[in-house]
């Protein structure tokens, strides 16, 4: 009996210490969570005093927790809106792009094995319900030589609020005025047509199961699950199959006009080798951190993340930041005081 009590006490003490050592708390986006966990784990191994406790509760939750001051920093797949920034009292939020991802169209048409090509306007028309059948002239024109069936298109989209949906709809808003006015860009939308499924796996499953369907998933998800996906026409007019180089090129293309606060969408970025539906994901860091230890830990981590940390991207199929962007972010670290 005594032994058990001692064991329980020891366990409790152990749990206690590990909870105290988690001296930085962060919460937010789920999309970059795997690489963030990896970074925090490696960084802790190299600088044993710094443990970051990251909860991947979603971008919206990350922003809310940062606003209410329950976390030291947040993370989001969409930049904060002016309204959200105005709601924060006591400090300003700095956006630090960390890695990049992309969204790809995936489809299931029985008898069609070719990789289909889509222009932005065709994708918007499909998701608006204007293009109703696969053999529509607007799709056939872009895919000469592919025999498309006279079958109704079933659209699959994310039902859960998601950064993936934000990027997808942000892109469609840029290439289609009608999409912009009727639907717009957001993490949850009022979809004109289609079925909703939960998560990348839900959309992928629905597309895989339903003949003549089309949906969209994160590039990482498609690559890791060996899914086929279509080519998307970029702003330079080239039909490009998404890969990590194309995503980094999109960020490099956007780097020239990068606003000082990094709140920028890089969908439909200029450049012939830029993949059109690419995005940054951001860490949201307060510019004023009163605790000197925390401030230094965060600043040192950011420096490490922008240099050595980027080396872990490829292994986890994230696109690393282009060096122009890294250089600009390094300067922004000095604004934290």
């Amino acid at each position: 009996m005594k032994k058990i009590t001692t064991a329980i006490l020891a366990l409790a003490a152990l749990a206690g210490t590990s909870a105290w050592a988690a001296d930085l708390n962060a919460a937010g986006a789920t999309f970059p969570a795997p690489i963030y966990q990896k970074w925090f784990q490696v960084y802790k191994a190299e600088h044993s005093s710094v443990q970051v406790n990251y909860q991947s509760i979603g971008s919206g939750g990350g922003i809310r927790q940062l606003t209410s001051g329950t976390v030291d920093f947040g993370a989001s797949d969409a930049p904060m809106t002016d309204e959200q920034l105005a709601a924060i009292k006591g400090f300003k939020v700095l956006h630090f792009p960390t890695v990049m991802g992309a969204v790809v169209p995936t489809y299931n048409i029985p008898g069609v094995n070719a990789e289909l090509r889509f222009s932005g306007s065709a994708l918007a028309a499909i998701f608006l319900g204007d293009i109703k059948r696969w053999n529509d002239a607007r799709i056939e024109k872009e895919n000469p030589g592919v025999k498309l069936p006279n079958a109704a298109i079933l659209v699959a989209h994310r039902a859960d609020g998601s950064g993936t949906t934000f990027v997808w709809s942000d892109y469609l808003s840029k290439v289609s005025p009608e999409w912009k006015s009727r639907v717009g860009a957001n993490t949850s939308l009022n979809w004109p047509v289609g079925l909703g499924a939960k998560g990348n796996e839900g959309v992928a499953g629905l597309v895989k199961q339903t003949p003549n369907s089309i949906g969209y998933v994160e590039l990482i998800y498609a690559v890791q699950n060996h899914m086929g996906y279509g080519l998307v026409q970029n702003a330079g007019g080239v039909y490009l199959k998404a890969d990590l180089n194309g995503v980094t090129a999109a960020a490099a293309g956007a780097a020239k006009n990068m606003p000082a606060d990094f709140r920028v969408s890089i969908t439909n970025a200029p450049g012939k080798d830029a993949y059109a539906i690419s995005t940054f994901t951001w860490l949201l860091i307060p510019d004023t951190i009163h605790d000197a230890t925390k401030r230094n830990d965060i600043k040192n981590f950011l420096k490490w993340m922008l240099t050595s940390g980027q080396g872990y991207c490829a292994g986890l199929t994230y696109a690393p930041l282009p060096k122009q962007v890294v250089a600009k972010e390094m300067k922004q670290i000095d604004e934290i005081h």
Binding site: G58, G60, A159, D160, G161, S162, G163, S188
Partner: peptide, 11 residues
């Protein structure tokens, strides 16, 4: 369902 789906990312 809608609560489970949209709560975490509600903007």
């Amino acid at each position: 369902s809608v609560i489970a789906n949209e709560f975490t990312e509600a903007t």
